[in-house]
């Protein structure tokens, strides 16, 4: 499958725009773009599970945090070079997802959701209590970032490259033979089993893919912040990325990326006026659930169809 032309043009334009951000934009815009890129990847990774396999994880922050902490600790405490620390962090997130996923994919639906949350709170508790390693609730402060990318603009380009490659890989996975079959598993697990698909193994692989790419996003965040904090493992972080995914639209590949950008901007805007960001998120979630279950992208498609009919 080739990307539809409209989507391809938008992707190229967005990429070109991002490349120019440091040239044309302010420092603030560069920082904002870096953060949004990281959250885009985080949301897209979750959507492999939600949108493509039909399993809702309430604990996706766990793998984000494992990636972040591992990268931070290996770079700083053990002074590993980036070329080892970064892949090791990603690998560990994937392994953690493989372990947790083994238990979670035995269950479906509500049980699955509960178990993902329970595991994520476990990861949070470990990050909180293992002070010697993680810094506990003070956070892991002062991450050593290699000089080559330590700086606002270099780090932005580093993030852009890593996120672009990751998204490209995710795109291929979601549009692969695996991705197609995964959608069938989402649509009708019983039928998929009866055409010869081991649906549990499919969901397990999806869980690992999602966890691995969340780990990449987490590692990027740890270096960006020069620190890693327990809040990144907390359930509110899982909630936030879930809302990003739904807001953009879980039935389209790029929807969650759009949702991430939208929610992040909304966050930046809202916290200037109120400390009650969770309420804003809750209200957004209610609106999505009751009125636009397909998210912004789905809404756009609907409007386009209506307009086409009107012509």
């Amino acid at each position: 499958m080739v990307m539809p032309r409209g989507t391809a043009i938008v992707v190229v334009l967005v990429l070109a725009g991002l490349l120019l951000v440091p040239v044309l934009g302010s420092n603030y815009l560069v920082d904002l773009s870096t953060e949004i890129l990281i959250y885009m990847l985080f949301a897209l990774s979750l959507n492999v599970l939600i949108g493509y396999s039909g399993n809702v994880s309430f604990g996706h922050a766990a793998y984000f945090a494992i990636g972040g902490y591992t990268c931070a600790i290996l770079l700083t405490t053990y002074e590993w070079p980036l070329l080892l620390a970064f892949p090791a962090a990603v690998l560990l997130s994937g392994l953690a997802a493989a372990f947790v996923g083994y238990f979670c994919v035995k269950l479906t639906d509500i049980y699955f959701a509960m178990l993902t949350l329970a595991f994520a709170m476990f990861v949070w508790a470990v990050a909180f209590k293992w002070r010697d390693m993680t810094g506990g609730d003070d956070g892991f402060v002062g991450v050593t970032v290699p000089a080559l990318i330590d700086g606002r603009v270099p780090y932005f380009y580093f993030t852009l490259v890593v996120v672009s490659i990751s998204i490209a890989l995710l795109w291929v996975i979601c549009h692969s033979a695996f991705g197609r079959t995964l959608v069938a598993v989402r649509e009708n697990r019983t039928r998929a089993g009866f055409v010869g698909v081991n649906t549990r193994a499919m969901r397990h692989v999806a869980f690992v893919v999602a966890g691995t790419f969340a780990g990449i996003a987490g590692a990027l965040l740890a270096m960006y912040n020069h620190g890693m904090y327990v809040e990144s493992a907390f359930w509110t972080e899982s909630a936030q990325v879930l809302i990003m995914t739904l807001l953009g639209g879980m039935y389209s590949f790029f929807g969650p990326a759009m949702g991430a950008a939208l929610l992040y901007l909304l966050n930046v805007f809202t916290i200037q006026y109120t400390e009650y960001w969770p309420t804003v998120q809750g209200v957004i979630l209610l609106i999505i659930l009751l009125f636009v279950p397909e998210g912004v992208v789905g809404l756009g498609q609907k409007i386009r169809q209506q307009l086409a009919k009107a012509d």
Binding site: Y276, P278, T279, G282, V283, P293
Partner: peptide, 20 residues
């Protein structure tokens, strides 16, 4: 609706009532 929707709904209640 799907179970998922109800689950997410109660999730929204958590966010709002926590602030409340």
């Amino acid at each position: 609706k799907e179970h998922l929707m109800q689950l997410l709904f109660t999730f929204a209640i958590v966010l709002i009532m926590g602030d409340l």
